[in-house]
Amino acid sequence: MLLAKLNAPGEYRELERKAQLIRQHVIRMLMHAGSGHPGGSLSAVDILTALYFRVMRIDPENPQDPDRDRFILSKGHAAPALYAVLAERGFFPVSWLESLRRLGSPLQGHPDMRKVPGVEMSTGSLGQGLSVGVGMALAAKLRGSGCRVFVLLGDGECQEGQVWEAAMAAGHYRLNNLVAIVDRNRLQIDGETEKVMALEPLAAKWRAFNWSVIEIDGHNFEEIVPALERVGYAQKPTAIIAHTVKGKGVSFMENQVDWHGVAPKPEQGIQALKELGGR
């Protein structure tokens, strides 16, 4: 991409390092918890890292700033990745991560906005985050705020009818401050999305709902960052279809549907951490 070429070489190395650290956190958290969703967490890590460490205008010291950018993890089961990113970004102590899914922990199995600093919306039941994003984008327009709203959806999640209700509304209201990112890892619980309930042509669907659509490699910062920074140019909402690999970064998890919702056993976790350069 043209924009990518303008960036200095190695500019994204720091983001890559950060993403690798986040992946290590995810594996450790799931090992501690003994349950959770590694596949869809790992596929989303690079997108989340780009958002929180590069793109979004946020301040962990002032998490309620009315003009902050908003992020909604509509695919709430990727909570471990979001928690790890928020902790690394300074919203809460990294030591909290070990408490994932424990009784009384702020780090619920799916994100709870009332328990975790930096979580903008409680999610978990699929298909709902984009509607909330539409509401937040409308609110920003009403207030005259320049804040932007980013919503990360799973690809399987796009089978929910509500996603398209929200897509229609965003197109109707020309919400150019709204970005939907689809984590297109092509797998859902029961198998390949195209076999369970085909999504393609997915980009054409978003275009038909009056969105500006970009397709990127969801693991390449040279494509992720410029795409996320493009928001607001068109008088339309932006959909980014991020082609990703479920379980990205751990060889035996990559593209394996069975790693959707199973935590690694200790020896598997150790192997995964070794591959991710951790201990």
Partner: peptide, 12 residues
């Protein structure tokens, strides 16, 4: 469904 979700976003 979207009606309620939009309302939630505005409230948030």
């Amino acid at each position: 469904a979207n009606l309620i979700g939009m309302a939630a976003g505005l409230a948030a």
